[in-house]
Amino acid sequence: MEKVLLIIIALSGLSAVSSHAERQYHFVYEAKNMSEAQRYCREKHTDLATVDSMEVVELLNNMAGQYNQSAWIGLHDDWDTWRWSMSDPSFYGPGETEFRQWGPGEPSNGHDEQCTHFHRSGIWGDHDCNNPLYVVCFDVTGPNATFVLIERGMTWTEAQSYCREHHTDLASVRNLADSQRIESSAGGVYWIGLYRDSWKWSDGSFSSFEYWAENEPNYIGLKVCVAAAFNNFGKWEDLDCGVDKPFICYGPVPVKPDMTPEPAVSTVPVVPVSMKVIKVSVENPNGVDLNDPAFLDAMLVEAKKNLRAQGLDDNVQLAWRKQPDGQVFHEEEEKKRDEL
């Protein structure tokens, strides 16, 4: 027989609130998938949380309190948003920013394929931005463009820097005529200016701040959404967007009648949190590793069902308490077993 501690965290409300600078964060303990969480945040507040500094990370960790699992934030991997390095809207006619000549099966939207190459046949493909390829720059005068082919291998970032220094930018291919002009001189595979920024925040904002856990993102399966893991200091992990989890919204900080914003300080979460520790004894079934993560998860699911049958609501969170050696279950000593 082995014994372990099962922690039950009971949350008596639906959300906790803290403020930081111009944003007020709302920790919602009701579990939803990413799309449902995003819809809730946009209806009730502004959007899913944008985490763009260590100060915000620390605030959210304080809000989480004794909640030691993960919760959705607004970061997701946007496979379909492609845009041109040359961003001046006056250069493009109607529909020209959306002109594409993808080859069969392209773009494949691989996580490491975020830049576009132009094959001498005129067909495009998405490609690893770090591979060295030839380059198509262009010089822009009003609505007109002169294409310049550089047959020297560069990464996409190096190509963009080179083209912006010596010409106008990496080439935009706006229509079939532009494509045919490049094809007429092309002799290989070239970078053009179309690329995508993979990770984006739900509210459309951009930030270079990252707080990934070790070996994350790991891109296994359909993991294109991000949660903050509060059993790991709020570090980020990529997960399947369809998983139901608590989530964090943000909205504007309330303004006082004299139009003076509330002080930008962290506040204690308004949701009372209680924790109960229950000892669980289990007879070891033949050949079953009681510390196997799959077995532990299955036991939590069954425990949650039993608690729900006893009238406890879904705000109750369950977690195993690990011992200092990282294991959950330990075999009892003979003396203690006899006492039982």
Rank of each mutant, 00 (worst) to 15 (best):
E2W: 00
L5G: 11
S19I: 05
H20D: 07
Y29D: 00
E36M: 12
E36C: 08
R42H: 13
A49Q: 01
T50C: 06
L60E: 01
Y67V: 08
N68G: 14
W82Y: 14
Y92I: 12
P94E: 09
G95C: 06
G95S: 03
E98Y: 11
R100F: 13
G105T: 04
H111L: 04
C115K: 06
I123D: 14
H127N: 11
D128M: 04
P132G: 08
V135G: 05
D139Y: 02
N144W: 01
N144K: 09
T146A: 11
I150L: 04
T157D: 14
A159D: 02
A171I: 10
R174Y: 10
R174T: 14
A177Q: 14
S179K: 12
S179P: 07
G188K: 03
S198T: 13
S198C: 13
S207G: 01
V224G: 15
C225D: 10
F233W: 13
D238I: 09
D238W: 07
D240M: 15
V243P: 15
K245M: 10
C249F: 00
G251A: 00
G251Q: 03
P257V: 14
V270M: 12
K276V: 15
G287Q: 01
D289C: 06
L290N: 02
N291I: 00
D292M: 02
A303W: 02
A303Y: 04
N306W: 02
L307P: 04
D313E: 01
V316M: 10
A319G: 14
W320P: 09
F329C: 05
F329I: 02
E334Q: 15
K335H: 08
R337G: 11
